[in-house]
Simulated assay, not measured.
Amino acid sequence: MANPLRTLRRRKRHAARHPRSSDQRVAVIGLGRFGSSLASELMRRGWDVLGIDTDARLVQKHSDTLTHAAVADCTDPEVLRQLGVHDFTSAVVGIGTDMEASILVGSNLLDPGYPTSGPRPSAASTARSSNASASTTSSSPSTTWANASPTW
């Protein structure tokens, strides 16, 4: 059994070494296994979390535990604007089942000048998204989580 006083002291030392910013808000896009685990852990650590998924059942399942939850298709940049995702300090794309959607959402998050009207993205914009994602550093979600978790 852990000593509560020792645990409290350890938490205080950790908090002193890793100061938190005053605005800890994150949007988690995709509430599958990775996204829901990440969202739950961030909520446990005191973050405000907006969980977004296209599956209404997943959103309903997590709506009681997350700060905000929405059913939406984030491949449309207008949806991101309406949800206010760009106002959050961080965003995580946890879409693992559709690589094209994952790249497109990532591109929408990185490019605030992305067109916000018109039909679904054309092949040209999808190609632009693929080229944009190829130029950034990428890693697997588990590697990113493992590297980032000590600083939270």
Rank of each mutant, 00 (worst) to 15 (best):
A2D: 10
N3I: 14
P4Q: 05
P4I: 10
L5A: 15
R6S: 13
T7Q: 13
T7R: 07
R10I: 14
K12W: 07
R13Q: 14
H14R: 15
A15L: 13
A15I: 11
A16F: 12
A16D: 14
R17F: 01
P19Y: 11
S22W: 06
S22K: 12
S22M: 01
D23T: 15
D23W: 03
Q24A: 08
Q24L: 14
Q24R: 14
V26K: 01
V26G: 02
V28P: 06
G30F: 04
L31P: 09
L31R: 04
G32L: 07
G35R: 01
S36V: 03
S36E: 05
S37L: 12
E41P: 00
L42D: 02
R44V: 11
R45H: 10
G46F: 01
W47S: 06
D48T: 15
L50P: 05
G51W: 00
I52E: 00
T54F: 00
D55I: 11
D55V: 14
R57S: 12
R57K: 14
L58W: 06
V59S: 04
K61N: 06
H62K: 04
S63P: 02
S63W: 00
S63G: 00
D64S: 15
D64H: 14
D64P: 08
T67C: 02
H68M: 09
A69F: 07
A72V: 11
D73G: 11
C74N: 01
T75G: 09
T75E: 03
D76E: 04
D76G: 02
P77M: 03
P77E: 03
E78S: 10
V79M: 03
V79W: 02
Q82T: 12
Q82C: 10
V85I: 15
H86G: 05
H86S: 06
D87S: 12
D87W: 01
T89M: 02
S90A: 13
V92Q: 00
V92I: 14
V93T: 10
G94I: 05
G94V: 07
I95N: 05
G96K: 04
G96P: 03
D98F: 02
M99F: 08
M99Q: 13
M99P: 08
A101Q: 13
A101M: 11
A101T: 13
A101I: 14
V105C: 02
V105Y: 00
S107C: 09
N108V: 11
L109T: 11
L110N: 06
L110M: 09
D111R: 06
D111A: 05
P112Y: 04
P112S: 08
G113M: 10
G113T: 12
G113S: 12
Y114S: 07
P115K: 05
P115R: 06
R120S: 15
A123W: 03
A127W: 05
R128T: 11
S130Y: 11
S130H: 12
S130A: 10
N131C: 07
A132Q: 03
S133Y: 07
S135A: 13
S135G: 09
T136W: 06
T137N: 01
S139E: 09
S139V: 12
S142V: 15
S142N: 13
T144N: 04
W145T: 14
A146Y: 02
S149F: 07
S149E: 11
W152A: 08
W152L: 13
